[in-house]
Structures are given as structure tokens and as C-alpha cells.
């Protein structure tokens, strides 16, 4: 027994090394656990504050571009309101009166304080948290299109998995044909993503717009995702290989809108009830 302890003592550095290495590998493998524990990521208050201060200067230089973007967005929104007003009499008969449906989506603005595009799994930190009613799973957009999904929330900050994250799948459709597919980032170029599961018999064209389908309760329908850049159909594949050029330039995000879907719980619960009933029928 004494010799065993002597042996252990002799190799104590190696043992500590193996122990720490196992600990960190466990951390890598249970990333999901850590991303939801806000103490260990950049929604931690100390970390977020540090990052925010270091970004203040950077933000200042981007103000000119930011102003232009806001003015453009305003113009677009005004245009939309105008055209809606013009057609309001036509659609009057079809109007929905249910208040809950009309105000189903609520938008919360937020400022980006940390953002990466170079890794395989990229996260964005924003300066709004649970105090502002944000909770994990909400969708995030900006004026150009979708940005990502909220992963973890602390009191004043949240971390979202950006669309440039390999685990983020967005239910999308090709606007022209209405075909349902899934958008997922390929991992290399921050401007391109893959549109998966578009079957053989559909022939998407380069230049087709891809928008969200609205089938999951995260994003509303018809939010832009990107434009088809290339379509390849291999002989042995069931699906088209489609690359889309993302509408968003993820390297220069500044202000985002978090979408709160008030009817999400209702939709999810009725769907889960149906799924559990189905096998018994």
C-alpha cells in the first residue's frame, strides 16, 4: 500500500494533468449545459461589462453607417405603412379581430456588445436580459433578416447562437415555390449558408429569395434569410445542394430586435399533445 502511494506521489503531476484534462473535455462535451449557465459565458455580468467597455470606441466609429441604416429602414417602413394604408379598404372584410393574434409578436430592441464570425459556433452577446422579458429560445432579427436564437439569459445580458452556429437550424422556404427546407450554416464563409432538404423535383433558380417558413414558433413568417447563389443537383442525391447568400452581413451587426412570441406556449403545447396522441390512434 505504501508503495502504491509512493507511485501515485511520483506521478502526481501527470495525475493532476489527466484530471484537469478530463474536466475540460467534459466541459467541451456538455457545452449545452454551460451555455445555459450564464455564470460561465459572456452573459456573465463582469465579462459582459468588460466587453462592452472595450467595444465603446469601436461603436463610435460605426455611427455614420448605423445612421444611414436606420434612415433606410425608416424609409422602408414608411413605404410599407403607406402601401398598407392604400389597400386598407380592400382587406377590411378579412381583418382579424382577435387582439392576441394581432399583437402576437412583440419586438424588443437590443444592442450587440460582442459578436464573432470566425469560429464554427458563433455567439452574439446583447445588452438586454431577463429584466426586459427575454427568455431562451426567442428568435432575433434585424432590418435585413434573421440573426439567431437566444441561448442563455442573465439579468441584464443575453447570449444568442447566431445563424453562423452549426446547431442552429432555421425552418425556411423558397418564396417563389413555397417549398419547405432548412437553413444551416456550413461552417466556413460568414456570407454563405446551406439550404437543405429541397427535393429533386423542385428546380430552384439562382436569385430566388429564401424566407422563414413560420412553422416553428420562433420566427414569424416571411422574414428574409438570403438569396440562392448556386444550385447543384447530383445524380445520386435526393436533395438539391443549395448555397444561399445571407441577407445579413454578420461581421457588422449593431442593433437587433428580439421577437417575443406570445402564443408560442399555446402553439407548442397543442402540437405536443397531438404528437403524443398520434401513436394510439
Amino acid at each position: 500500500m505504501g508503495r502504491l502511494f509512493l507511485l501515485l506521489f511520483k506521478y502526481r503531476a501527470t495525475l493532476v494533468f489527466v484530471l484537469l484534462e478530463i474536466l475540460s473535455l467534459w466541459m467541451i462535451l456538455s457545452t449545452d449545459l454551460f451555455i445555459s449557465a450564464s455564470a460561465f459565458n459572456s452573459s456573465n455580468r463582469f465579462v459582459a461589462n468588460t466587453i462592452r467597455y472595450s467595444n465603446t470606441i469601436h461603436t463610435y466609429f460605426g455611427l455614420t453607417d448605423l445612421n444611414q441604416e436606420l434612415v433606410d429602414e425608416n424609409a422602408k417602413l414608411k413605404q410599407e405603412i403607406k402601401s398598407l394604408k392604400q389597400s386598407i379598404y380592400d382587406i377590411n372584410t378579412l381583418r382579424v379581430d382577435d387582439d392576441e393574434i394581432i399583437s402576437q409578436y412583440e419586438y424588443q430592441d437590443a444592442k450587440v456588445i460582442n459578436n464573432t464570425t470566425q469560429w464554427l459556433n458563433n455567439y452574439i452577446t446583447i445588452d438586454k436580459g431577463s429584466v426586459n422579458g427575454i427568455s431562451p429560445g426567442m428568435g432575433v432579427v434585424n432590418q435585413y433578416g434573421i440573426v439567431g436564437k437566444i441561448q442563455s439569459v442573465s439579468k441584464h445580458y443575453s447570449v444568442l447562437a447566431s445563424l453562423l452556429h452549426n446547431d442552429v437550424l432555421v425552418s425556411s422556404k423558397i418564396k417563389r415555390t413555397g417549398t419547405l427546407g432548412t437553413t444551416n450554416w456550413g461552417g466556413k464563409n460568414p456570407q454563405l449558408a446551406d439550404l437543405k432538404y429541397i427535393p429533386r423535383h423542385i428546380t430552384p433558380l439562382v436569385g430566388d429569395t429564401v424566407v422563414t417558413s413560420g412553422y416553428n414558433a420562433v420566427f414569424p413568417e416571411d422574414i428574409p434569410v438570403g438569396i440562392i447563389e448556386s444550385v447543384v443537383l447530383k445524380d445520386d442525391k435526393n436533395f438539391n445542394d443549395i448555397k444561399i447568400k445571407l441577407e445579413n452581413d454578420f461581421t457588422k451587426l449593431s442593433y437587433l430586435y428580439v421577437i417575443k412570441n406570445k402564443l408560442k406556449v399555446e402553439k407548442d403545447s397543442i402540437e405536443s399533445v397531438n404528437y403524443t396522441l398520434a401513436p394510439n390512434e
Binding site: A13, F17, E21, S24, M27, T31, F40, S42, T125
Partner: peptide, 20 residues
Amino acid sequence: IDMFYNSFGVHTSASVLLAF
């Protein structure tokens, strides 16, 4: 470093290996 990079354990494991 991992806290700031949002990469859980990736920098930790590399650093520990380096130290060893």
C-alpha cells in the same frame, strides 16, 4: 479566456496540455 470567447473548455484543455 473561455468565458470571454464563449467556448467552454476549448481553451482550457489546450492550455492544460501546454502546461503539461
